[in-house]
Amino acid sequence: MPRMLDVSDEVRAEIGDEEADRLLGGDNAPGTYDCTSCRTPGDSERERTSTVLFVGEETAVLAFAHASCIPSQVVPVSEEQLQGAVRSITGGDAGQQGGQGGEQTVDGLPLQAELGVTSGLLLINGEVQPALVVEPLVPIARPGTTGPVDVFLELLNEQGFAPVTAIDQLPDPISGWSVLLVMGKLHAVLQPNANGGQPVAWWQAHQPMQVAEEWRSAVNKTGRVLVYAAPVGTIGQQPREDLLREAMDRAAASGRLVGAAMPLAGT
């Protein structure tokens, strides 16, 4: 039976006309699926469904999502990220958990440093906004040097992050950056490739990071994530969102907070 599939031009270019036509005809498309964005069931025979192609260096994975959640598109990822996406899509990492309170230690690229990332919700201008707060575990030196000056905020300013003086204002979008969320789990923050081509991971989770249902719902509503960053020791591990907001307010008031709004990379 023909499926109500959306196959974008870029997805068709990657998989070829023959495979795209087979999908549209129902030969290789699932009837029911778990949406790769909101994680709720979908039915390609009854509702418009987007094809989302995750492309790594050597392999690619085709996933499906409600068209109302995300459009059909190609999502470039590293091979390691792709394997994590496969585990999320197939349920292979169902027993794994992120860090406590939505926090997880990750590798920051290209800074080559350990970063802590916390997910939370912020109330800005009367609307709930999904946010990530990034804080290094050690002072950050400029690549190619050993410090000792912490230049974390300076490096991010050079990348397009803007100083945040008050949390009650939305940070501006940043060109080329995005947040990779697959099956409701956080995989990476992507940045433009300095050499051109596919985006690269600026931050990548050691394992997919579980986020709260309320956070996922806010992301699906806004289609973007507010990403904030502060130097080591500025925010700390906060057990509640009100305490996180207070720590961010203090960081902003002291000129130690930068931020940017980023779209979702595919899901």
Rank of each mutant, 00 (worst) to 15 (best):
L5Q: 01
E10V: 09
E10R: 07
V11P: 00
V11S: 01
R12G: 00
A13W: 00
E14K: 13
E18N: 01
E19T: 09
A20V: 02
L23M: 13
G26T: 04
N28M: 11
A29E: 09
P30H: 07
G31W: 12
T36D: 05
T36M: 03
S37W: 06
C38Q: 09
C38I: 02
T40I: 11
P41H: 12
P41R: 15
D43G: 03
S44P: 01
E45C: 02
E47Q: 14
E47I: 05
L53R: 03
L53A: 09
F54C: 06
F54I: 12
G56E: 10
A63I: 00
F64T: 06
H66T: 04
S68H: 08
Q73E: 06
V75P: 00
S88R: 15
I89R: 08
I89N: 10
G91P: 14
D93E: 15
A94Y: 07
Q96L: 14
Q100G: 12
Q100C: 05
Q100N: 07
G101D: 04
E103C: 07
Q104K: 05
Q104D: 14
Q104H: 05
G108Q: 12
Q112M: 13
Q112L: 14
E114F: 11
S119C: 12
G120D: 07
L123H: 15
N125P: 01
G126D: 05
E127D: 11
E127S: 14
Q129F: 02
A131N: 07
V133C: 07
P136E: 02
P136K: 02
V138M: 14
V138S: 10
I140G: 02
I140L: 06
I140D: 00
A141D: 10
T145K: 04
T146F: 13
G147Y: 10
E154W: 01
L155G: 09
N157C: 03
Q159D: 10
Q159T: 09
F161C: 08
A162G: 06
P163A: 08
L170I: 08
P171L: 11
D172I: 00
D172F: 09
P173Q: 12
S175K: 14
V179N: 08
K185W: 08
H187P: 00
Q191N: 03
A194W: 10
G196E: 04
G197T: 06
W202E: 11
E214P: 03
W215Y: 12
S217E: 13
A218N: 07
A218G: 01
V219M: 11
N220F: 00
G223C: 01
R224L: 08
V225P: 00
L226P: 00
V227S: 03
V227I: 07
G233F: 11
T234P: 01
G236D: 13
E241M: 14
L244P: 01
D249P: 00
A251W: 01
A252E: 02
A252V: 07
A253V: 02
S254P: 00
S254K: 12
S254D: 14
G255E: 11
G259W: 06
P263V: 04
G266C: 07
G266A: 08
T267R: 11
